[in-house]
């Protein structure tokens, strides 16, 4: 594992998300191997790496969908390691899935209301109006979620995250395969939430998007963090080239 450098200016405020020594093994395969990193409040951290490098498993460990074999996860200083997903969500974490996971038999509007079941139920209709406007999906509010295009489903899933105003958001390839207009809407929404103090950790293969939106990037390979830094630092890192291209240049 290469040495990684954290160049941020530290304050007394605990990181919005702190992962330390996180490990998870599936039978003989180590999917996540001692991953450690912090994300500050309102920071956008990109998580990149080749397929099978452990990114989605790491997401599931942070979100409580999987239980780690070791290590810790802290949200705003609060230890949430091993908590079930619903409890981690209530502690302030929101997420999207690699494949959009909408409630297909419910309308788009009801999908958004469902996101407020465990939060501000009374204010949900007003918040839903804001979410529909921000993600520009007002015109499909009454449609069944399962009848939407892939891009629209990504927007609705993001809107559902927006409904809960989480402190930390995990986005798993949220712009993969979408039209450039939809990509722009999502980026706009990320920035709007960031301005409100939300912290993002996003898995992305679209390097242009990573360069555009991420304050910092970490690179995973074989379950480990192999590099960390700005986009320019990462782009010039030999370890990263080896991970992606299989050779060092």
């Amino acid at each position: 594992m290469s040495t990684v450098t954290d160049t941020r200016t530290h304050t007394d405020e605990p990181p919005a998300l702190a992962v330390a020594g996180l490990r998870r093994r599936f039978a003989g395969i180590v999917a996540v191997d001692g991953v450690t990193f912090d994300v500050d409040r309102a920071e956008v951290l990109g998580l990149i790496g080749p397929n099978g490098s452990g990114k989605s498993t790491l997401f599931n460990l942070i979100a409580g969908a999987l239980t780690p074999d070791g290590g810790t996860v802290r949200l705003g200083g609060q230890a949430v390691t091993g908590w079930p997903a619903w409890r981690v969500a209530r502690a302030g974490l929101g997420r999207t899935f690699q494949i959009p996971s909408l409630f297909g038999n419910m309308s788009v509007h009801d999908n958004l209301l469902a996101a407020s079941c465990e939060g501000d139920w009374r204010g949900a209709p007003e918040r839903a109006r804001q979410a529909l406007a921000l993600l520009e999906i007002d015109h499909v509010a009454g449609n069944l979620a399962s009848e939407l295009s892939g891009g629209q489903q990504k927007l609705v899933e993001f809107a559902r995250v927006y409904m809960r105003s989480p402190r930390v958001v995990l986005l798993d390839e949220v712009t993969a395969g979408v039209h450039p207009n939809i990509r722009a809407i999502i980026l706009n929404a990320v920035r709007a939430m960031q301005l409100d103090g939300a912290t993002f950790l996003l898995i992305e293969h679209d390097m242009e998007l990573v360069r555009e939106v991420c304050d910092r990037i970490i690179v995973m390979d074989f379950g480990q963090v192999v590099a960390e830094g700005s986009f320019e630092e990462i782009a010039g890192n030999a370890e990263v080239r080896r991970a992606y291209l299989g050779r060092s240049e």
Binding site: A63, G64, A65, P84, A85, W86, R87, A89, R90, G94, R95, F97, S101, L102, F103, G104, N105, M106, D110, A114, A115, C117, E118, G119, R160, R164
Partner: peptide
């Protein structure tokens, strides 16, 4: 209805 349609997503909403 949320858990009927997608249980992991419902849990991710708390």
């Amino acid at each position: 209805r949320a858990l009927r349609d997608h249980e992991p997503a419902a849990e991710a909403l708390g």
